[in-house]
């Protein structure tokens, strides 16, 4: 069966690991080629380790293992010229971009509370009986939104939050 994104090119920021890598792999499974960008170095104000060049290499391996092409570059989304150079390098190799995932982000808050306290918060706040959603669940929502199935869907907010916002 043909993939849902056959022949498409996707530009993904923050693609070295986490949700960005998950999106790269999920979209590649459906036939998309990928332009992957990540800063791959630490930002001083962020208390947890950010992605590394090895993480970005791993994304490359996983996409290539699916027989899709990938152009990966280290770039900082705050640096327009650097980001443009990465984008242009991808387009030169893969052709015009169809899909853009502006995914890169940091959460410079403390995630160091004891696990039980975190667990209590999650248990109370999600409506569906799950603690956390998986990256692939976010990727699946994105896959649908970027596919032709959603060609008349725009300006929408799609929480993948196990009912958290509805419960508030």
């Amino acid at each position: 069966m043909a993939g849902r994104l056959e022949g498409k090119v996707a530009f993904i920021t923050g693609a070295a690991r986490g949700q960005g890598r998950s999106h790269a792999v999920r979209l590649a499974q459906e036939g998309a080629d990928i332009i992957a960008v990540d800063i791959c170095r630490q930002i001083d104000t962020v208390p947890y380790p950010l992605a590394t060049p090895q993480d970005l290499d791993q994304t490359v391996k996983e996409v290539e293992a699916l027989d899709r092409r990938i152009v990966a570059r280290q770039a900082d989304v705050r640096d327009e010229a650097g980001l443009r150079a990465a984008f242009d390098a991808g387009v030169a190799e893969l052709g015009p971009v169809d899909i853009v995932l502006a995914n890169a982000g940091i959460a410079p808050m403390s995630l160091r509370e004891p696990h039980e306290a975190w667990q209590d918060v999650i248990d109370v706040t999600n409506a569906l009986p799950v603690d956390m959603v998986e990256s692939v669940d976010v990727s699946n929502a994105i896959l649908w939104l970027v596919s032709d199935d959603a060609r008349y869907v725009t300006g929408i907010t799609v929480p993948v939050d196990a009912g958290y916002t509805n419960k508030k």
Binding site: L143, Y152, V153, A162, N166
Partner: peptide
């Protein structure tokens, strides 16, 4: 694919 999507107003409204 939407197993954790609930309570949502899903617009298909161009």
């Amino acid at each position: 694919e939407s197993r954790y999507v609930t309570g949502l107003e899903f617009t298909v409204d161009a």
